[in-house]
């Protein structure tokens, strides 16, 4: 690495396009809504920056606090589910024969190449009352009835007729959708760390008398921690801010904070309140990231102590 002074022209040529883009089209817009959060509506489009805190106070309205709470809860459950589903998948890929690895990885990434809207839309056909999950369940129900009929148990056990589950337009559907859309975000970082894991560490653990399960929890999980943390962050943050998934799959009682922000900027046209909410969401995100940095720092410190 050399000082930028060694070749200032080259340095500026490298740094300026990205830095300017970031400044003009990222930092400046964020700064603008940061300002708006302290503004008041002065007309249909005009907003005066009066440094009022009313918008932030508005965010702490119990309704919105409840929404934040629900968003956090939905994102947490979805993240945990993605982790539980994704960890064995990542393990399987990293221990697959070398020639199969790219293929399975591709299989995991492939759905990414489909627009998020289309993937979310595809979930509707699967989850609705006349959707495929319910068709499947109904089929199992019929099978059960036929099997149990000779014993006269069919009505007792299976009920009089099949009642389709309400799978769509509720929080469960939203969680399901988040896991579906963001699962690759969990699998990829997990795979990246597991793949770099020294196999002989696992062999050493088995060799010293630990069983497979013990080895998984004492060796694999602690050593895959960086990947697990990245996966959690990569799923949790988008899940926290989602509005498309909850908009299409959620019901009236599963509005998330993203939906409310969108509404302030589109239908409700209350930009200052929306801006304040966006920044609260940003602060929550930063808190999560700071927590991660703190945990990482503490562990690093322990290692050095």
């Amino acid at each position: 690495m050399e000082s930028w002074r060694a070749q200032p022209a080259v340095f500026w040529a490298f740094v300026l396009p990205g830095a300017l883009w970031l400044l003009c089209f990222f930092i400046a817009p964020l700064a603008l809504i940061w300002l708006l959060a302290f503004g008041e509506r002065a007309g249909p489009v005009e907003i005066d920056i009066t440094w009022t805190l009313a918008n932030y106070a508005g965010v702490f309205d119990p309704v919105y606090i409840g929404l934040f709470g629900r968003s956090l809860w939905v994102a947490t459950v979805a993240t945990v589910l993605a982790l539980v589903i994704g960890l064995p998948v990542a393990l399987a890929i990293s221990f697959a024969p070398a020639r199969l690895k790219p293929l399975i990885l591709l299989l995991i990434i492939l759905p990414f190449w489909t627009n998020i809207l289309i993937r979310t839309y595809a979930m509707i056909a699967v989850l609705r009352t006349k959707g495929f999950v319910n068709f499947g369940l109904e089929y199992i129900w019929q099978l059960g009835t036929v099997v149990l009929a000779p014993f006269g148990l069919d009505q007792a056990v299976m009920g009089e007729r099949f009642v389709p589950l309400e799978l769509l337009y509720n929080n469960t559907a939203v969680i399901f959708g988040i896991v579906y859309v963001y699962l690759p975000f969990m699998v990829l970082p997990l795979y990246a760390t597991l793949d770099r894991l020294d196999r002989s560490l696992l062999e050493a653990s088995l060799d010293l008398g630990a069983g497979q399960i013990r080895t998984f929890f004492s060796i694999i999980v602690p050593l895959a921690r960086p990947g697990i943390v990245s996966g959690i962050i990569l799923v949790f943050i988008p899940a926290l801010g989602t509005f498309l998934i909850s908009d299409l799959l959620g019901g009236t009682d599963s509005l998330l904070i993203g939906n409310v922000i969108e509404r302030q900027f589109k239908a409700a046209n209350n930009w200052p309140l929306g801006a304040a909410m966006s920044f609260v969401l940003l602060y929550v995100t930063f808190a999560v990231l700071a927590l991660r940095a703190w945990v990482a720092g503490r562990e690093g410190g322990l290692g050095k102590a």
Partner: peptide, 10 residues
């Protein structure tokens, strides 16, 4: 790392 919606509204 920041939620897309924040960037979107900005």
């Amino acid at each position: 790392v920041i939620p897309e919606i924040c960037m979107g509204v900005a």
